[in-house]
Design a protein around this nucleic acid. Structure first.
Lengths: 344, 344
DNA sequence: CTAACGGATGTAAACGCTTTCATCAACAAG
DNA sequence: CTTGTTGATGAAAGCGTTTACATCCGTTAG
């Protein structure tokens, strides 16, 4: 049905070995022969069967991308970055979503990617350190994104410092009752961002001489809905916050809507700062912490592909990159209304 | 390094053929034998090498997903839907992005997916009808999403009717100067939504006795930035619209920000209706046309997998599904301010 | 008791490549 | 003129499965 390497060999009057070499740009092929092979291949619209070639070459030319889910802004951007450089380097990308039955544990149990990918980008580190260690031990090249691990190169943010940036901005404006929407995850080893950001929040409060009020720290599930629910709880309290640090822009957006629905104004009654710099945030005027998600994906892919390249020396030391974040002040933060009281 | 089928065969004291049969649940294997093989396989943590098995079985158990890009809300949701059902059916999904060098044409030229996927979901039909025809002729199972094609099953929206829904809502409120942000694409064969929605817009104007003003139809590139730029142009005109139909929520969001930056209010000065029902739209109170993007992705995948299943009869007639849309009225639409003038 | 049958199993030939190794020609050096 | 050397090429052995076909054996029908 479709041409095989033998067809090309016949058409070019050479052996299949020569076709293979010529097509892959290997040395020791006479220029004239190579030209003839190339012509024949393109004439026959020949494309090497990836399965055959991967079986023979013992490399899949595929990198796996393990993430908790697709469909959110963050993961889509990440995917986009990874995909771009992976494709540019001639690899395929194979997404693994942890959402299905069994999730992470089944993923590790069945190792569905075994023999299927040359390397793995693990996002939000849905794996325990020892699980990661086992993988690395099994010879799987991998880089983690979102959680630092000692066993493999990683790309992270300084979440604690970033949170300090956000919260200090708020305390600097005079806020004293500061809430955080984020939440402690089930397992800090798997997704450390919320706990680190919470630490930064506490840091900043301490620096401003404020004692953290545990009722002002509510989980938001990193979703619009979760942010809205969290804000509802905050507003329902006896002494609501004048400022909120949401650990994602989506939670911030959900929360702001609740604020407005309650007849309050942002930032007059409640200041809001998010995290991510979601595409829409600029258009909503949301003050936020910017991170370059696509760039992180690109970087992770590049790192992994570097790992896959034949290392002509000792095993390289794992790289740990901490990507920058930046406070973007827009229009959802301002001094607390009560500061006027204090002045008066 | 990792167990092969021979290792399992040896451990279970049977031939590799029996192992293969036992593991794949084929008939004609004695229950006791099957149990023994299963035990051995799990003991050795055996997983069949996908490349070998795909080469031998001549099917890749992979479905390709060709889309213009990842990273936007729409495509991420679609991806999410496709991925879920594809994974549930034991297939892998291999994304192909058209963004890179050459884009669609190179994609078709090299047919990079040839021999690599069993079927293809083509999103936003980046292919000409005759290109699609060639693919189908070449035996590639495919379903298109976003553009109806006669050669293959398709999943579409009735974009024209949906646009009528949106625009009639606006005319019903009394608007007479109605803009549309969407734009005519380079090639209506590749992405027909904008032209169909424009038709629906014209329909509704006609029904309301309004002559379309070509200066009120501006392209917006289906992006936040594009929406903003479009709105800038509309506002800069001598007689700006009192209502805008944006062909995507993202364009609507970009446009609304420009409206507000100009010191105008939504919906008092400008009504806005979007298209998609983006996750954030509910939180922004955006009136919009809802479509179930994830559901469309799921459906496309299901259709394709059905196509792949052994057809024990004549070639099935291509299914053309038109998925529903619905107008969701929220808070960005209202009667035009000037309607008061008319009353007065 | 024999022949035919059918279920369980094994043998071995693909599948379409890559890659090692051998071969060969041409040419430089002795 | 031999002997090395080097670059171009081909032969063939895998790579780890699937699957058509053959074999074996216990049943059942005649």
């Amino acid at each position: 049905m479709s041409a095989s390497i033998e067809d090309v060999a016949r058409a070019a009057s050479v052996s299949v070995a020569t076709v293979s070499r010529a097509l892959r740009g290997l040395p020791n092929v006479a220029p004239s022969t190579r030209a003839r092979v190339l012509a024949a291949a393109s004439e026959l619209r020949y494309v090497a069967d990836p399965h055959a070639s991967r079986l023979a070459a013992r490399r899949s030319l595929t990198i796996g991308l393990a993430l908790p889910m697709i469909g959110t802004w963050y993961h889509a951007k990440l995917f986009s970055g990874v995909e771009a450089v992976v494709a540019a380097n001639g690899y395929d990308v194979l997404p693994f979503t942890m959402a299905g039955t069994g999730g992470v544990d089944r993923f590790l149990e069945d190792l569905p990617f075994r023999k299927r990918v040359d390397g793995l980008v693990v996002v939000d580190a849905p794996l325990h350190p020892d699980q990661l260690g086992r993988l690395v031990g099994a010879g799987v090249a991998l880089v983690t994104l979102g959680l630092r691990s000692e066993q493999a190169p990683s790309i992270t943010l300084d979440n604690r410092a970033a949170a300090r940036l956000a919260v200090s901005h708020l305390t600097g404006l005079g806020h004293r009752r500061l809430a955080i929407i984020g939440g402690v995850p089930d397992d800090p080893f798997r997704f450390s961002a919320p706990v680190d950001r919470h630490r930064g929040y506490v840091d900043s409060l301490a620096a401003a001489g404020i004692t953290p009020d545990p009722t002002l720290a509510v989980p938001g599930n990193f979703s619009l809905e979760g942010g809205a629910e969290a804000m509802q709880r905050l507003l329902g309290a006896s002494d609501p916050p004048t400022a909120v640090f949401a650990c994602s822009d989506e939670m911030a957006i959900g929360a702001m809507q609740v604020v407005r629905d309650a007849g309050l104004r942002v930032p007059r009654d409640v200041s809001m700062v998010g995290f991510d710099d979601h595409d829409v945030s600029a258009y909503l005027g949301l003050t936020t912490i910017r991170q370059d998600v696509t760039g992180q994906g690109e970087r992770a892919a590049r790192l992994l592909i570097g790992l896959l390249a034949p290392t002509d020396g000792a095993t390289p030391v794992p790289v740990h990159e901490v990507h920058p974040t930046r406070l973007i002040v827009r229009h959802t933060t301002g001094p607390p209304a009560r500061s006027a009281d204090r002045l008066g």
